[in-house]
Design a protein around this nucleic acid. Sequence first.
DNA 1: AGATTCGGCTT
DNA 2: AAGCCGAATCT
Length: 310
Amino acid sequence: MRSPAGNQNSNSLVRMSGQPQPIEVVYSGKQHDESPDMRVVPFRPKSPEFELPDGWVVEVRPRGPTSSVLADKYYYEPGTGRKFRSLISVQRYLSGEEDIVVPRKSPSNSLVRYQHSGTVRRVAYGGKVLTPDELDEARQAKLDDIVPETLQPKSSSIIPDGWIVEEIPRKCGTRSDRYFIEPGTGQKFRSVPDLQKYLASHKYNSKCKALTLRNHSTARRSSAPRKKKTSLKMFKTFQTSIIDLTNPPEKINWVFSGDGRDNWSPLVEECMLPDYVKEQWEETFLLGMNGWKHRVPQLMMGESNGATNS
DNA sequence: AGATTCGGCTT
DNA sequence: AAGCCGAATCT
C-alpha cells in the first residue's frame, strides 16, 4: 500500500484521489529544503499568506522515515469536521466562491449535498465579523482598528473570535437565515440571544486562540529524544485551531495527559483555550476512544515502529 | 432524531 | 428591514 506503481524515484507529489481537488505542495526531503520537488499550484491564492481562522484544525501527519515526504497536512473545519488538503481549498470554501460538498453526519452517506450557493461565511475576529480575506488582511496588517465594510455592528461585538457566522439565503424571498457556529464544537445558534445564553453559561473565553494539533503516528514515543524546533515553525505558520468534538478527524493520535504530554505543552502554552473546551475534549476523547478502537484499531496503534516497512 | 427551511411575529 | 424562534419539512 505504499507506493503505487512506478513512482519510486519520483517526487512526493501528493496523490489525489478521485475528485478534482487542489494540489498540495509538499516539501520533500528532510535536508533538501531548497529543492521542493514540486510546486504544483493549480489555484492561485488571492492572498498568498492566507491563514486559517481560529477554530480550524491543522493536522500535521508525518510520514514514515522512509518517505521522501516529511509530512502531510490536513485542515479540518470546526463543526463539520470536513477535511481539506490544502489551504487554497479552505480559502475558496470559506469565501463561498463555489458550491461545495458538505459532509453529512449520516454515516452511510457522508457527502451528499451541495451547499446553497448563496451561502456566505464570515469569521468573527476582534469583535468584528470578517470575510476570510479581511481576516487575513487584518492579521497581516496587525491592525486592530480595521473596520471592514462587512462589519456587522449589531451583533458582532459579542461574537468571540473564531466563531463562524453563516448566512444562508432562502430559496425564495430575500431573506436569509443566520447561524453562529462555535469553533470546536460546531454548535449552531440561531440568534444572538441564544448565543449569549450559551456564552454566559459556559464562561466563554473570547480570546480563544490557535492550537495546532500534531500527530505523531510515526513518531516513536520510546526513543524520541528531543523535539525539533520545527514544531514551533509549524505553529507559526499555521496558527489555529480546535478540534471538532462531534466529529474528530479519523487519524489523529491524541496526546493528552499521557506520555505524550510534552508534545502538547509547547503548543498549548501559546494558546488560551477555554477550560470548558478542554474538558469537552477530554470527555469526547475518552468516550470516543472506544468507538475509535472499534472502528479503526490500527490507526491508534500506529503504523509506527517496527511495522514500518521500507 | 437531528438538520434545514419556512412563516410569521417582534423589534 | 432585520432579528428571533416555533414549527413544518426534509434526510
